[in-house]
């Protein structure tokens, strides 16, 4: 045990005295930003796709949009996120002539990626809402899109909130690959600390701990949100 204590002391020294904590904080910030903003983008994209997929398909436009959405979902579910990051950063953006900081690229890719997953979650959520709700909205003269946004989607979101929380947790953990394109996340921070004296045991343990704590906090938040959204179900 003596050597472990020594390792902890050394880790602590680098963490405090050699600016290690700064790197960790930056990494933490990037991780959270990429996951949260990514999920926000994902929810917007996913809701749009889900709304298109559940649309009645008499006309040609919804049918074409549906094909496009399916292609998109297939593309982003069919490739690992590392590949998406690399292709976007080294192929797509240079071809388009766009220059973006790595963190922004990560936000974009994580948003697009989670959009594909959220669309399926959201579609299930929308289908779980009683079709009578849509009919009632249409019957009082609201348009399809207004009924969707004001009546159906809020109820769908309530139903899928636990699954969306899961998605956020998955995103948080998946951000550990963003160093592939040079974005500074927790992994980069703790590797830096570890490589300072070639001692990786304590830094990586600390990294694991931080991930666990983050996930626990998110789970708590999701539960709180769920409870406040459930108020329309509660009987007084």
């Amino acid at each position: 045990m003596g050597s472990f204590e020594k390792k902890v002391t050394r880790f602590w020294e680098i963490f405090i005295n050699q600016n290690g904590y700064n790197k960790v904080l930056t990494g933490l910030k990037n991780t959270v930003i990429i996951a949260v903003v990514g999920l926000a983008i994902g929810i917007v994209i996913g809701t749009l796709i889900a709304a298109i997929e559940v649309m009645p398909k008499y006309r040609r436009l919804p049918r074409i949009l549906d094909k496009v959405c399916r292609f998109y979902v297939g593309l982003f579910r069919g490739t690992p996120i590392v590949v998406q990051l690399l292709v976007t950063y080294y192929v797509v953006l240079p071809l388009l002539g766009v220059n973006m900081p790595p963190v922004n690229v990560c936000i974009l890719v994580f948003g697009l990626n989670s959009g594909a997953y959220v669309s399926e979650i959201m579609r299930g959520g929308i289908l779980s809402v009683d079709p009578g709700q849509m009919e009632a909205g249409r019957a009082v003269g609201l348009s399809y899109s207004v009924t969707m946004m004001k009546i159906v989607v809020p109820q769908a979101v309530k139903n899928i909130l636990p699954t969306l929380g899961n998605e956020l947790i998955a995103l948080i953990k998946e951000t550990s690959v963003v160093s592939f394109v040079g974005a500074a996340d927790l992994y980069v921070a703790f590797s830096y600390i570890g490589s300072n004296n070639y001692e990786f045991m304590v830094p990586y343990l600390a990294m694991a701990l931080i991930y666990i704590i983050m996930v626990m906090i998110i789970a708590m938040f999701v539960r709180l949100m769920e409870r406040s959204l459930r108020k329309s179900d509660r009987r007084n």
Binding site: D130, G132, Q133, E135, A136, G137, A139, V140, I151, P154, Q155, K158, S232
Partner: peptide, 14 residues
């Protein structure tokens, strides 16, 4: 044209 349904269909989230 108002409509009243068998299953009421009140908006559950309102």
């Amino acid at each position: 044209m108002g409509m009243v349904f068998q299953q009421f269909n009140l908006f559950n989230n309102k």
